[in-house]
Simulated scan of single mutants.
Amino acid sequence: MVLFARPCGADWLSNAVRVDSALENLSRLARIPQSQKPNRRGSYVTLPAGCGFGGGRTCPGSYANTAHNAPLVQAILDRPDVQRVARYVDAGLQAYFPKLHSFYSSLLEHILADSPEIVRMFQGCCYGACHLNLHNASTVDHEDWYNILFGMCAVYSSGLYDHTRSGHFIAWSLGIVAQFPPACAVYVPSACVTHANTPIASHETRSSIAFFMSAGLARWYHNGYISDKEFKERASVAQLNAWNASRAKLWEVGLELLQYT
């Protein structure tokens, strides 16, 4: 299921212009090794922020950037206009999927309490992490495997492009193609729905902020703040059977969290 949040008003549009400018400036200032271009989602620059668990980590932690890029990313996160976008996507998730929003909020609070070295990405936002996709962000067909399977990622689109001719959002698994105007957000189950964007013209710019919650954080918390590997090594037969049974019924948990009431 794909939902668009479509704000309006001069104040929001003014906020969007400031976000556009900030992301374009980050695109000019960031230094990206050639080995990181392109990424698996497309031939654009992307920088991570927030926290997650997986990909060889031994415990949850903040996503890393280079010494040059880290302060640039933090400066983006500290901007009031970008923080307003974070609160906007948080409010949208709460409005459409209140149970999932409560789950995300509780999970993030528990992770941050257990790992005080992790700095919260945004106040007033239930998402644990985001990717800053810069300048010409048009994605190829992909799924985001490391995100919570039944979760809804939020993608805020930014830039100067003709949304009637380019930058469309495609949810291949659902058979949906939709216009995706700047200063709007889409909510999509990105781990299980193949999705992409149509390219923009060479004279256009398009950035995005993709908010997500790492599935590894949910597993870490569910295991009692240890990894799957460590849990299975420590668990009794009864505990392991219960663990496997809970995993087999995870889809039921997901369906319940996606219901409005």
Rank of each mutant, 00 (worst) to 15 (best):
N136H: 14
L100D: 02
M121H: 10
V89G: 12
V82F: 08
H135N: 01
P80I: 09
I111Y: 14
E117M: 09
R120P: 13
E117Y: 12
L108Q: 13
R120F: 02
S138I: 04
A113Y: 00
A91G: 04
A129M: 10
N133Q: 13
M121V: 14
A91N: 05
V140S: 15
I111H: 10
D90K: 00
K99T: 04
R84N: 09
P98E: 06
P116S: 10
M121W: 13
A137L: 05
Y88E: 10
A95D: 02
D81H: 06
Q83K: 15
G128P: 07
R84E: 15
F97S: 09
A113M: 07
S102N: 03
V82A: 07
A95F: 11
M121Y: 11
I111S: 11
A137F: 03
A129Y: 06
Q94Y: 04
G128N: 07
D90P: 01
L93M: 12
L108N: 05
H101L: 00
K99L: 09
G124T: 11
I118V: 14
Q83A: 07
H110Y: 05
F103Y: 15
Q83V: 01
S106A: 14
C126P: 12
L134E: 02
L132P: 02
N136L: 09
G124I: 02
H110G: 02
S105F: 10
Y88D: 03
L108H: 02
V82Q: 08
V140R: 15
K99C: 02
V89S: 13
Y104L: 12
S138D: 03
P98C: 03
A95Q: 11
E117V: 09
K99Y: 02
D114G: 11
R87M: 05
C130A: 14
F103Q: 08
C126I: 09
